[in-house]
Design a protein around this nucleic acid. Sequence first.
DNA 1: ATCATTTGACCGTC
DNA 2: GACGGTCAAATGAT
Length: 309
Amino acid sequence: MECCWPENLPSKPKRAIEQLIEGRQLATQLRSLLSNSLGDEASTLTPAKDLLLKILNSFQNSLTILNSNDPDHKLMSPIPTKTHGTKSESSEGSCRSISTLKDRRGCYKRRKNSQTWTKDTATLMDDGHAWRKYGQKVILNAKFPRHYYRCTHKFDQGCQATKHVQRIQEEPPKHRTTYIGQHTCRTFLKAPELILQDSSDPTSTDSSILLSFDNTISNKQDTSFLISSFPSIKQELKEEKPAMSSDDIIAHNPIQSSSSDYLLSPDRTPALDPFGHMSVLSESDNGDVISGVIVPPVDFDDDVFSFNF
DNA sequence: ATCATTTGACCGTC
DNA sequence: GACGGTCAAATGAT
């Protein structure tokens, strides 16, 4: 299967690069400020400078990736060539060859052999990927409806990952998230939108809690550029809220998501895959960044993972 | 205007 | 035939 950038993509990487450059410049300014304010505090600020250098490296790596313009990038997912007229044509490939648009409604094939993960959490929390809700269904013998999400990049990058979320318990609130299929998308393509997030948005305050790397950085303005490592987090929080039914609203409180939901080591350049693994970006010889998975996954407190293959 | 969500309909699987 | 997963028009939000 051939890989290629979608036709509508070039402007997006351009915006991403612009934003990354700006972020890098801001980080450089911060480094200057830190250097100027050094003195007796030099030893205490050294970790901050180290962190800053890593942030700058992250920006540089991201810029390298985007500038490489390599259609066969190792992380790049296979993009379905849009030889067919409609997006639904690509769904699972189960549609009969000739049919009208209307006929294709609900046309799909269940993925029997897809990898599935289930995860029980007390709160609806971000998993580091951008999801778009596409359905909701009342399930037999279930008190609460099931919400269906697909990866936001399903059509622009051909990512086949989906998940469904179902509240399974009222008191204490418990949600079961089932992930189906692996992400093949490069989620950082959404980064510019996140960097430009509205600071007045109360949900972004919530996400800053989720993204707190350690206690030394608590101000959202200080950490906003770090969010670019986790492209979908704001979006998901934004998505989950309106998706809630009235009974879900009672249980859903994003602020309850403690910072320990994502225990991120500042010593790495981590990214969460949909399954809660910590992905670490490493650079290959040609400058490409390769995602590797580190086991065990993130410490989710008392959250429960189960895997079905 | 664009993008996300809602919701009823459709269809494959059991 | 029931159930569950997905589609897509309608609607809402920004």
